[in-house]
Design a binder for these strands. Structure first.
Lengths: 207, 207
DNA sequence: TAGATTGTTAATCGATTAACAATC
DNA sequence: TAGATTGTTAATCGATTAACAATC
């Protein structure tokens, strides 16, 4: 079963559905509908039903969806019902914040090791992690079988770091550096860049 | 001239073009082509030309685009040729990192004030900022005429904070809290959420 | 000139929506 | 039963691409 059959834009919405369902569950709800979910997320009910229909039938006519069941199904589809170990590369202000972030654990992710190239930082602590030498990155990531990494180094170093990560066996990169990475097409990349998002919004400002 | 005429998905790509052009300029380049830009960004040359054509004619047949001129034009289109003051709400680990981030200045943005509701934090320093009381948020944002805000509070508090920001005159929100915000449709919202991005990528992992 | 590259058109491709039978 | 809501189909809507005349 080739996964290319489901449009990426659909896949991109599943984590948002999951997030909202988890919140509903925390609020004590047991069921929801495409209409309700759509209103909360700001998209149409039809789109939610269409999206889910790519993966199976999860609801009941008349009553909607069981929240816990749909959460379970989405976690399975997204493969976040287990835990993925991650590497974090670059301990500046942002890397520091991410290393201390407690929110990964409940959503299928866990930082396993943290790297930096600065001799001043290597060996010291960030959160619960001892900062490791970037020079040992390939060896460690390979032996730990880490498939997911976050890049929080400077823009100038990001491409080289990314290439080394790929060489070490990493298959998915969350890139916080403000550059487009050029990597083999079987490597997944997502970008997080506040400047890009801010500039997107100011376009719409009244003159 | 109603701005809705240009698809949002086109607008979303302009900051990426701008980012790449600025990098080329830093590398000492003077001109580029849609083919070259496309290769660097990972999209087709045709798409870049089509996108730009919504706003005017910026290139020359045979030689391509002047980098400095195209940067100038994109900055003007995106309205980032000036500086937008921003408010930051929530000084946890992430808010702390953002308050210390030096990268906004060169791209049209500047943090002007930082808020938190915790009496322990109010009055203390984060980066160059003194943390202000959230209770005074509306008054300060209104008097400073701030139009852009970043939310780095907990998920539970984000909606209320967002509503207060809107009440204070904010028109664009960069939301780091892991919830969908429900706000008037004239308010621009962008989301930054590593969990969402990570879950998007693991879908594609081989079983 | 010959080669390169633009801006634009038309064709293709893909995503969203509206509608509704099925059914809880 | 009556009302609600699903999953799916077909129609609509929108975005991307390929191709090319224009021209630097």
């Amino acid at each position: 079963m080739d996964k290319k059959q489901v449009p990426d834009i659909v896949v991109a919405r599943l984590p948002i559905y999951l997030q909202t369902l988890k919140m509903l569950e925390k609020e004590g709800e047991y069921t929801t509908s495409s209409k309700d979910l759509g209103k909360r997320i700001g998209i149409s009910a039809a789109q939610i039903r269409k999206d889910l229909s790519h993966f199976g039938e999860f609801g009941k006519q008349g009553t909607g969806y069981s929240i816990s069941y749909l959460i379970e199904q989405l976690e399975s589809i997204l493969q976040v019902n287990g835990v993925w170990n991650m590497a974090l590369v670059g301990v500046g202000f942002l890397g520091h914040a991410i290393a201390n972030f407690k929110g990964f654990a409940n959503h299928g992710f866990q930082i396993k090791c943290v790297f930096d190239a600065d001799p001043q930082k290597i060996g010291s602590k960030v959160g619960e992690f001892t900062i490791l030498d970037s020079a040992k990155m390939e060896e460690i990531i390979r032996s730990e079988k880490i498939k997911v990494a976050m890049i929080t180094v400077d823009a100038i170093h990001a491409q080289a770091v990314a290439e080394l990560l790929v060489k070490s066996g990493v298959k998915a990169i969350l890139n916080y550096a403000p550059v487009t990475l050029n990597l083999p097409k079987d490597i997944r990349i997502q970008y997080i860049d506040p400047i890009i998002e801010l500039q997107h919004m100011t376009y719409y400002f009244q003159d």
